[in-house]
Simulated scan of single mutants.
Amino acid sequence: MNVGKALSVLGNKVLLVDMDSQGNLSQCFGVHEPADQVIDSLLGSSPLPMLEVGERLFLTPSDIRMAYKESELANAIGADRRLTVKLEEARSQFDYILIDCPPSLGICTTCSLVASNHCVVPIQPEASAYHGVESLFNRIAEVRTYINPSLTVKGIVFTMVHKNQSVHKSMMTHIRDTYRNFHIYDAVVEVSTVIKQSQVAKEDLYSYAPKSPSWQQYHQLATEIMTL
């Protein structure tokens, strides 16, 4: 949400695609139980719905209905390329298309990787999150090998960081060393009450707290994404 907003504030036309059946991205924009959503388009002939949620900012929403139909999608012909096909017409309309993936490696994440040119990988500097990322990198490698050779890891971003915790500091150092062949963004998104408050208010940080350090962190990340 906030990366997309920052990119739009920087003058880009942005589409946000919610591929997570929890629908958190959609809910943050106040979109609940959308009549037209991603899964309906992927399983049918209709184009992806695109709701205008801000200046130069559009949303393709989802909700729990995606979870109910995920197995149907997985068994459909050409399942992993369906999002790619649906996005083809939209690519020329937008400067950036950001796909919000679920925290799993199921068909929705695979669809997203197949449809993408680049991945931005968020990592919380905790042992459990670090170990989970290895599986993601393996999946990215498989998609590159068998389906989408143009897919690259654009960068790794540290998120939900407690900068004053020695555990987080040491883990970030370890991750930088382990993944030194990947770009790691200078922008670091710290744990912040204002982020949680903005989510409750269903507002992006630019609208809710434009002078907050949290907004500046997302703005810096978006700037890095554009320039690197």
Rank of each mutant, 00 (worst) to 15 (best):
T145E: 12
L59V: 06
S112V: 05
T109F: 04
T223E: 11
T227K: 15
M172R: 09
D63W: 14
L43T: 02
I195W: 02
V38G: 05
D177G: 01
A79G: 04
N75W: 06
G4T: 06
P122N: 12
L151P: 04
A127S: 07
N181W: 09
I156A: 00
K202I: 08
I39V: 13
L43V: 04
T109H: 08
H32N: 13
V114E: 01
T178N: 07
G23E: 00
W215M: 09
S71K: 08
F94C: 02
C111Q: 09
P149F: 07
V191I: 10
E33L: 08
H118E: 07
H219V: 06
S116V: 08
M1Q: 12
R139E: 12
L87W: 00
P34K: 06
H162C: 05
V14C: 15
S41C: 10
V14H: 15
M19G: 08
E72D: 14
N164S: 09
R139C: 07
L42P: 01
V161C: 05
S46R: 11
N2C: 07
D80G: 01
F182L: 13
S214W: 09
R180H: 15
G4S: 08
L87T: 00
G132P: 01
L105M: 04
M160K: 10
M226R: 14
S8A: 15
H162K: 08
Q27V: 01
P125F: 06
E70I: 12
L16S: 00
K163C: 06
A115S: 13
T110C: 10
V120W: 00
P49V: 03
D177L: 01
S71M: 06
P103M: 00
Y68K: 12
K13P: 10
K86M: 01
D18I: 04
G11F: 13
T110M: 14
I195D: 00
K169D: 06
C28E: 03
N12V: 01
V153E: 08
S212W: 15
